[in-house]
Amino acid sequence: MNINKPNLSRRDFFKAGSIIVGGITVATALTPFDGLLFATEPPKGKGKWYGIGIDINKCIGCGNCAKACKLENNVPKDPFYFRSWVEQYTIKNDGSVLVESPNGGIDGFKQSVPDEEIFKSFFVPKMCNHCAKSPCVQVCPVGATFETPEGIVLVDENYCIGCRYCVQACPYGCRFINPEKGTAEKCTLCIHRLDKGMQPACFEMCPTEARIFGDLNDPGSKINYFLKNHTCMVIKPNLNTGSKLFYNALSPEVR
C-alpha cells in the first residue's frame, strides 16, 4: 500500500489533468460550430433580395431623408435617435478630416471650415446596411432581430428584451434603444410602404435621386443598373458584414 501510494496519486493527477484538458477541448471544439456563424443566407435564385445604392456625387445634404424617416416612422425627435442621417465630411488641405452631422443633418448644414482651407467636402447619407451577414442578427440572444427572406433586417419590438447587444454589434451605429419602448429600433427599409407598393420615405423624399433601391436578384433592376455603371463600395468591407448598401464615389475617409 505504501509503495503504491505515490503511483496512485500521480495517476490521479494525470486522470484529473486529462479530464480537464479533454473538457476544455470539447468545449472549444463546440464553440465555432459552422452552421451557427451567420444568421441568414441570401436566397438561391428566386425571390427578392433588396439592395440599396447611394450616389455621394448626387447628395446635396438637404437632410430630407433623415427628416422624412423620423416623420414616417415616429422616431424620437431628440438628436440621439436616428434610423437615417447625413454626415458632412470635410477634408482640409492639411489632410485632417472633419466630420459633422448636426441633428443628423435635418436642419441643414453650415459650412464650418473656410473655403480656402478645404481640400474637398462631400455629404454621406447613412442608414442601415441591411447586411446579409448581419452582426446584429448574429448576436441577438432571442431572435428578436432577423433578416426577412427579402433581405431586410427587422426588429421584432414585441419580442425584443432590450439587452442592447445588437447596438454594440452594429459597426455602422444604425441601431438605438427607443427610450419609451425600451426595445431596439432601426431602419425597416419602410417595409410598411414597400408592402403597399410605395418607396421607402427617405428614397421618396430625396430631391436628387441620390438614393435608389431594388432587387439584386433582378438583372434589370435599378440597383443592378446602378452597380454596373458605377464604381461602388460598401463601408467597412473588412468586417465582412455582407453589407447591401452600396455607395458610389465613397472616399476612404468615410467610416
Binding site: V142, C163, G182
Partner: peptide, 25 residues
C-alpha cells in the same frame, strides 16, 4: 444583466428561444 434590460419581464425568452449564434443566449 437582467435589471439593465429594457424589457426585464421578457428575460425568460433567452431560455425559451435561445439564438444559438448569440454568445449571450
Amino acid at each position: 444583466l437582467v435589471s439593465h434590460l429594457g424589457k426585464p419581464q421578457r428575460a425568460y425568452e433567452i431560455m425559451v428561444t435561445p439564438h444559438l449564434s448569440s454568445a449571450m443566449a
